[in-house]
């Protein structure tokens, strides 16, 4: 429990530092002005969502293979958090898109596929909830966790092939298209959200474990 409290404190501290850096200490963008600050919330949300689904994938594969309940608790928790952060990423993206692109929503491949991931993993949660016994529910959700994640590469390549409104990724290997103070703010936000996610994941997995009876 002590490690959990420390993790929580670290998340609060990092979120405060990230909020200060991204709201006050970083400059406005040359083209987007103050709106660029939405990026410091949007990009970490999307990153955490993908991280959560990657964890769901690994935990699902391990659960299908080893059938140990801990893996299922992790997969279940990561799916729930992934759906939450995907929803937040879609919402913040929409809020950012309105002033910068002039539209709440565009039929860009990455937007559509992120929305599809939101639906697939909501489906996984529904299958688990509506299943006639919890063990079967865990197994079926793990199957969806595996096949759902295989859709992620399609997202990545569809951006390259579609070439629509969505700006190319700001941090690509070999070429940096972002000013150092902004990069600092973005990196700090990414770190803060990742620590927050780790805290929430541990908390939720422990809850799942207690719900299952709490056997070691």
């Amino acid at each position: 429990m002590k490690a959990q409290t420390t993790l929580g404190a670290a998340a609060v501290f990092l979120l405060a530092a990230a909020a200060y850096t991204s709201l006050f200490a970083s400059p406005p963008d040359a083209f987007q002005g103050e709106y660029v600050r939405i990026m410091y919330a949007h990009v970490p949300n999307a990153w955490v969502a993908y991280l959560a689904f990657a964890i769901t994938f690994v935990a699902s594969v391990l659960y299908v293979w080893k059938r140990r309940p801990d893996y299922d608790h992790i997969a279940h928790s990561a799916t729930e958090l992934g759906v939450l952060f995907t929803g937040l990423a879609l919402a913040t993206g929409s809020i950012w898109g309105r002033p910068v692109w002039g539209t709440w929503w565009t039929w860009d491949a990455r937007l559509v596929t992120t929305a599809m991931l939101f639906l697939i993993y909501s489906g996984a949660l529904l299958v688990r909830g509506l299943s006639d016994d919890p063990q079967r529910g865990a197994r079926l959700a793990a199957v969806i966790g595996v096949i759902g994640f295989l859709d992620v590469p399609v997202i990545h390549y569809s951006v390259v092939w579609f070439r629509t409104l969505h700006q190319p990724a700001s941090i690509a290997p070999g070429s940096l298209k972002i000013a150092p103070p902004m990069l600092l703010a973005l990196m700090l936000s990414l770190l803060a959200f990742t620590v927050l996610f780790a805290y929430l994941l541990r908390l939720r997995a422990r809850l799942a474990w207690l719900e299952a009876g709490g056997e070691p």
Binding site: I120, S131, D151
Partner: peptide, 25 residues
């Protein structure tokens, strides 16, 4: 796979479109 998956789930008519359409997009 999905036809087998929804067999033992309540409300499978609801789940089939929710799972098939996004996955097969």
């Amino acid at each position: 796979l999905l036809a087998a998956l929804v067999l033992h789930v309540r409300g499978r008519e609801l789940l089939m479109p929710l799972l098939l359409l996004p996955l097969a997009l």
